[in-house]
Simulated scan of single mutants.
Amino acid sequence: MQLEEIAPGTDALLDWLQSQNQAMQDLLQQIVDIDSSSRHEAGVQAVAETLGTHLEAAGVPVRFHAVPGYGVCLDAQVPGSGDGLPVLLMGHMDTVHPVGTAAERPFRVEGGRAYGPGVADMKSGLVLNVFVAEALVRLGRNAPPVRLFFSCDEEIGSPATRDRIMTVAREVRAVFNAEPGRVSGNLVTGRKGSMVVEFEVEGVAAHSGINHAHGASAIDALARKVLALHALTDAASGVTTNVGCVQGGIVPNMVAPHAKAQLDVRFTAETDMEALYGRIREIIEAESIPRTRGSITDMRRTMPMATTPDALLALYQRSAERVGFAVAGEFTGGAADSGLTSSVGTPTLCGTGPVGGHPHTEREYCELSTFVPRAQALALAILGMQ
């Protein structure tokens, strides 16, 4: 099938998306200037309501699923022809940026790039998905059914929504996850999984000058565990370990009775996770120095993303070519909810949002020139699945 034959009105759809560049930017500014860090319920709900209002004005029915402690999920349907399973446009509304960041670093445009907390990861992708859905509404029965699902806790490993996301993934024919396009412009066709292990170490308090030998330093034990955990990194197999947060002690002249840390682990679909987790547990629970004890207090895991089927990638590439750009797929070490959808066997393509860079930092940006063409390519790819 030639893309020109996909559906009557396709050229008009592309033209309409081309005309929406400023509208996309305006909606992006609205939601970037809303703090929506993970577990900030009011902020996440405000983002959801802003996007939901836009969708409903376009004639797209929207439902909100309450997720206590995290906010809401946005769930919307574009019925289209009603034939077959829908195509899922996925995203997440939470960011890593704490409350107050939007006031400190509000949305701004400079040199063709938009800046602000979450502008690339992944509020620009949410906006792109919303406008693609509105464009497909304009085709009516000529478009396939589409579902939008935006979650609220992805940045902390989707602890409250993973089961719902996997259920939704079983009800669709394919998933396009609008994480930011790579700096290269490429899509993401494979991802590592991630695991966060929180642990603590108990020691024995003592005065560090008067009776130092009576104490057992939890910080000393923690430091030894960090070295052992970091030694599990094996670049050849794709496993990396990083203790990124540590906390402990009370005052400098006390042998520390308590310490805690958070370990980030990245792995591939080929990793024996049970064996790796077993080794991590051994290190944490070992008596690194006498009279200390370590224990795991929490563990969160995100699945690795299985490789995107060649046919789905090729469909997007043909769509991109029609609107004037070339794109390839690449593997990344960052984890995402696309790992959950691919884990249930649903074909998944990630990084379909606008191109962005430096996520999770104050330098985070979105290339505004990529908004329209990537929206057009996604719309064409969806139409090509009829």
Score class of each variant (00 low, 15 high):
residue 2 Q to L: 15
residue 2 Q to E: 12
residue 8 P to Q: 14
residue 9 G to D: 06
residue 9 G to M: 06
residue 22 Q to G: 07
residue 22 Q to P: 01
residue 29 Q to Y: 02
residue 30 Q to R: 14
residue 30 Q to W: 11
residue 34 I to H: 01
residue 38 S to A: 14
residue 40 H to F: 15
residue 49 E to G: 04
residue 51 L to C: 03
residue 53 T to F: 10
residue 55 L to S: 09
residue 55 L to K: 05
residue 57 A to T: 13
residue 58 A to R: 11
residue 59 G to F: 11
residue 60 V to P: 05
residue 68 P to A: 15
residue 70 Y to W: 12
residue 71 G to D: 08
residue 74 L to N: 03
residue 78 V to M: 13
residue 79 P to V: 09
residue 79 P to Y: 14
residue 79 P to M: 14
residue 80 G to Y: 10
residue 82 G to I: 08
residue 82 G to P: 11
residue 83 D to V: 14
residue 83 D to E: 15
residue 83 D to L: 15
residue 83 D to R: 13
residue 84 G to E: 10
residue 85 L to G: 02
residue 86 P to M: 07
residue 89 L to W: 02
residue 92 H to V: 01
residue 92 H to A: 08
residue 94 D to T: 08
residue 100 G to M: 06
residue 102 A to K: 00
residue 103 A to T: 09
residue 105 R to N: 08
residue 111 G to R: 12
residue 113 R to Y: 10
residue 114 A to I: 12
residue 117 P to F: 01
residue 117 P to G: 02
residue 119 V to W: 02
residue 119 V to R: 00
residue 120 A to P: 04
residue 123 K to M: 05
residue 129 N to K: 04
residue 130 V to H: 01
residue 133 A to P: 06
residue 136 L to A: 08
residue 139 L to N: 04
residue 145 P to M: 12
residue 145 P to F: 14
residue 147 R to I: 05
residue 156 I to M: 09
residue 157 G to P: 00
residue 160 A to K: 04
residue 163 D to E: 15
residue 165 I to N: 02
residue 172 V to M: 08
residue 172 V to G: 04
residue 177 N to K: 05
residue 180 P to E: 03
residue 181 G to H: 04
residue 185 G to S: 11
residue 187 L to K: 05
residue 197 V to K: 01
residue 203 G to S: 08
residue 211 N to V: 07
residue 212 H to N: 14
residue 216 A to L: 04
residue 218 A to H: 06
residue 221 A to M: 12
residue 234 D to F: 07
residue 237 S to F: 03
residue 237 S to Y: 03
residue 239 V to R: 10
residue 246 V to R: 11
residue 250 I to Y: 13
residue 251 V to H: 12
residue 253 N to S: 12
residue 254 M to Y: 04
residue 257 P to Y: 07
residue 258 H to K: 13
residue 261 A to S: 12
residue 263 L to A: 03
residue 265 V to S: 03
residue 267 F to P: 00
residue 267 F to V: 00
residue 268 T to P: 01
residue 269 A to Y: 04
residue 271 T to W: 09
residue 273 M to K: 13
residue 274 E to I: 10
residue 282 E to D: 15
residue 283 I to M: 07
residue 287 E to P: 09
residue 287 E to C: 07
residue 292 T to L: 13
residue 302 T to E: 13
residue 302 T to L: 15
residue 306 A to M: 14
residue 307 T to S: 15
residue 308 T to D: 09
residue 312 L to V: 11
residue 312 L to C: 09
residue 318 R to T: 07
residue 324 G to W: 13
residue 324 G to F: 12
residue 325 F to C: 04
residue 328 A to D: 15
residue 330 E to K: 11
residue 331 F to H: 11
residue 331 F to P: 00
residue 335 A to V: 02
residue 338 S to N: 10
residue 340 L to T: 00
residue 341 T to L: 11
residue 343 S to C: 11
residue 351 G to K: 03
residue 356 G to Q: 02
residue 357 G to F: 08
residue 358 H to N: 13
residue 360 H to C: 05
residue 365 Y to W: 15
residue 365 Y to R: 06
residue 365 Y to K: 01
residue 372 V to W: 06
residue 374 R to D: 03
residue 380 L to H: 02
